Amino acid sequence: MKTLVALEIKRTLRNKKFMFFTVIYPSALFLMIAGTAGRTALVPHTDLTMPLYYTVAMASFGALTAALMGNSERIAKERERGWVRQLRLTPLPGRGYVLAKIAAAAVATLPSIVVVFAVAAVTKGVRMDAWQWFALTGAIWAGSLVFAALGVAIGYLATGDAVRPLTMIIYFGLSILGGLWMPTTAYPQWLQDIAGYLPTHAYAALGQAIEVGDAPHARDIALLAGYLALFAGAAAWLYRKDTRRA
């Protein structure tokens, strides 16, 4: 299994197009969105400045991209080409393939997080204590496992032709409604109520709590844990279903 994990990580890091969208794209969005905002401009109804808000939002968006987009499409394509069927003929346990995909996605999230942090510090003067930077990195990285599990589930649910449009709908829907592209305080109240139950909203809230010096809220942690159990359970069920079909 270690060999497959190493192979998956190398394949991910060598994919220049994928690494562009997971590393450069979130940082470019940060510059476009937060670049015109003043360093002291506050997000309405919060204690966060716009640069601080988008530091977490874009780092989370980059991690979401790496975890969700990479897994879903790659798994669907490999199922279609018969690669997954070939792996089932080897001694590799079924969970090994899934864990390899999650591990590769987890490694790919770290560069996106670090680059957004560096861009925010250099261009917008974002400053935090050392413990906050480390805590933010850990929280965003750990939270991305929720979306890695979702990516695996989508990869086993969709066909090779349908996986991209399905993933894009979920990807942009979660990003926009969850507050990664703009503060949810700008939404109508009914939309804010819906956003409060989305995994991306709880995901961003982890980092926002750390930015103001607080511990992440128990509700956000519980919500993410629930979604992780849901997505991982769905991925496991779909994997077993796909195995029986093969």
Rank of each mutant, 00 (worst) to 15 (best):
A103P: 04
D161E: 15
G94T: 12
Q208W: 13
F20R: 03
A158N: 08
A148C: 02
F172E: 01
V116T: 15
L92N: 04
S144M: 05
A186G: 08
A205E: 07
S72G: 08
T200C: 11
I194G: 02
P188R: 13
M50E: 08
I140L: 06
A106D: 08
E73S: 14
G160Y: 07
L42I: 15
F117C: 07
A139I: 05
A142F: 10
S144D: 08
L157T: 05
D193V: 13
T3E: 10
F172P: 04
L177F: 14
A139Q: 01
T200Q: 03
T109G: 00
G178E: 06
V122R: 13
Y197D: 03
L13Q: 01
D242R: 05
D129C: 05
T123N: 09
D47E: 14
F30D: 05
A76G: 05
P216M: 12
P93S: 10
I75T: 04
T55G: 02
V98T: 15
A148H: 00
S175N: 09
R14G: 06
L198M: 13
Y197A: 11
R79I: 07
Y171V: 02
V56C: 04
L52A: 14
F61Y: 14
K10A: 05
F18A: 04
S60Y: 03
G207W: 11
S112Q: 06
T22P: 03
R39H: 11
L87F: 11
A218N: 02
G143H: 04
P51C: 03
R88N: 10
Y53H: 09
F134A: 15
E211F: 09
A158F: 14
V114M: 11
A57H: 02
A41W: 13
A118V: 14
M69R: 02
L145S: 12
A153W: 01
G62P: 09
L89F: 11
V146G: 00
I176S: 10
A195I: 01
W237I: 09
M1H: 08
Y227D: 05
F231P: 00
R74L: 10
L64W: 04
T159W: 01
R245T: 11
R11L: 14
T90F: 10
G138D: 09
V114G: 03
A236L: 09
A234E: 04
I9Y: 00
M128K: 04
S27C: 01
T185N: 07
W133Q: 09
L13D: 06
L7R: 13
T12D: 01
F61H: 12
A209Q: 13
L228W: 13
I9F: 00
K17N: 14
P44G: 11
G213S: 13
F18M: 13
G196I: 05
P26G: 11
A158E: 11
M69Y: 06
T123D: 09
A59I: 03
W190A: 07
R95N: 14
R240E: 06
I154P: 00
A34F: 03
A66Q: 10
T40G: 08
I75G: 03
E211K: 07
L42A: 12
V107K: 05
W190V: 07
L206G: 04
Y25K: 01
P44L: 12
A118Y: 08
R95Q: 14
T184M: 02
A246D: 12
G173K: 13
A118W: 10
R219Y: 13
F20C: 00
V5G: 08
V107D: 05
I194D: 02
A202D: 00
A209M: 10
P165L: 05
V116M: 12
A205Q: 07
V84Q: 05
T109A: 08
L228V: 09
A37E: 12
